[in-house]
């Protein structure tokens, strides 16, 4: 009998109150930002298997950040928590008053991680950026990241660690699209068959004369993959993917309020918009687990034919819903 490979963990860590459970609830459970005020502190580890695409289940460990728990992860549960980690997402609260202490805790965590999962990727989220006045955000972020990097390299030198440790930093807030940028990037690294998806999207895009295609996972509305035409690359809005994720996710919640259906339920099957002679767009239910958004140049006939072609293309994307095949790796 074939043994399934053990799924790599995604660890979510950081000081209590830094916003870990809030982010997780918004991305994967369709909470709205305001609702997170009601979340209680996480007790020990909150384990969830988030079914992402058909063949990707995230093994997410939301680790309660109160001191006693942290000490416990670092001592008794050290092997249990830190072995077999694919990704560590470490969250810093930008408003925290005791930065030195936060850094010390962070270094202990990194130390345990490099010991048991030396190949794990590390994402550093500098969170609650909305609490910083807009014009100061960039500087505050850069400054904090510099500090984290400095502490990290001090540790590496001090411990004589020989592996590589590559931090990927993001500034985030649950109140804007920055959250989607960070999480889409995290997810992007975990999706299997990405190159197949990308090349198929490309062929579809060329066929229907699209300017851009965005493929969303249906619950989180994170962008799994995208394709942009040569002309589309002139679009000056650099953060458009996460903006669209945020926009559609919010709208999904308003629909749920309107219809009274659960937030995690499917909320719409089709959205079309023809902006005169500027552009056209449609977003539709694509495969069981995905939505496809198509940006087109204007034109009624072009629009109808693109819609038809996307219907047909569904077949060749069915693998996105496929079950887990034995032996498949998750990283």
């Amino acid at each position: 009998e074939l043994k399934k490979p053990k799924k790599k963990k995604v660890l979510l860590m950081g000081k209590s109150g830094s916003g870990k459970s809030s982010m997780r609830s918004i991305i994967f459970s369709n909470y709205i930002a305001r609702d997170t005020r009601r979340l209680g502190a996480t007790i020990d580890v909150d384990l969830s298997h988030v079914k992402f695409l058909g063949n990707l289940t995230l093994n997410l460990w939301d680790c309660g950040g109160q001191e006693a728990f942290m000490e416990n992860y670092l001592s008794q549960q050290r092997v249990h928590v830190f072995s077999n980690v694919g990704v560590l997402i470490y969250v810093f609260d930008i408003e925290s008053r005791d930065v030195d202490r936060d850094m010390a805790t962070y270094v202990s965590i990194i130390s345990a991680l490099t010991q048991y999962s030396p190949t794990a990727k590390v994402y550093v989220l500098i969170h609650k950026m909305d609490l910083i006045t807009p014009h100061a955000r960039e500087a505050v972020f850069v400054d904090r990241v510099r500090l984290v990097r400095q502490k990290t390299s001090e540790f590496i030198q001090g411990a004589g660690y020989t592996g590589e440790l590559d931090l990927i930093p993001f500034a985030t807030s649950i109140w804007d699209q920055s959250l989607y940028k960070a999480w889409a990037s995290i997810i992007h690294d975990l999706v299997p068959n990405l190159s197949v998806i990308e090349s198929q999207l490309g062929s579809l895009g060329v066929l229907i004369e699209a300017e851009e295609l965005l493929l969303f996972e249906r619950t989180s509305f994170l962008v799994v993959s995208n394709w942009t035409s040569e002309e589309g690359q002139n679009n000056p809005t650099g953060d458009r993917q996460e903006r669209i994720s945020n926009i559609l996710k919010h709208f999904k919640q308003s629909i749920s309020r309107f219809t009274g259906t659960p937030r995690n339920a499917e909320q719409f099957t089709l959205m079309e918009h023809k902006a005169g002679s500027r552009f056209s767009m449609f977003a539709c239910k694509f495969t069981t687990n995905t939505y496809l958004m198509v940006i087109l140049p204007p034109g009624e006939a072009r629009f109808n034919s693109a819609k038809l072609n996307c219907q047909i293309a569904r077949e060749s994307f069915k693998f996105l819903d496929g079950p887990v095949t034995p032996g498949q790796s998750y990283n």
């Binding site: 629909i255 309107f258 219809t259 259906t261 339920a265 499917e266 909320q267 719409f268 099957t269 089709l270 959205m271 079309e272 918009h273 023809k274 902006a275 005169g276 002679s277 140049p297 204007p298 034109g299 009624e300 006939a301 072009r302």
Partner: peptide, 20 residues
């Protein structure tokens, strides 16, 4: 382009899953 579009004004429609 202007002749390819049906209307110069924005037209949009969405279909909810609930009851289509």
């Amino acid at each position: 382009i202007e002749d390819q579009v049906a209307s110069g004004c924005a037209e949009s429609c969405m279909v909810l899953s609930d009851g289509n």
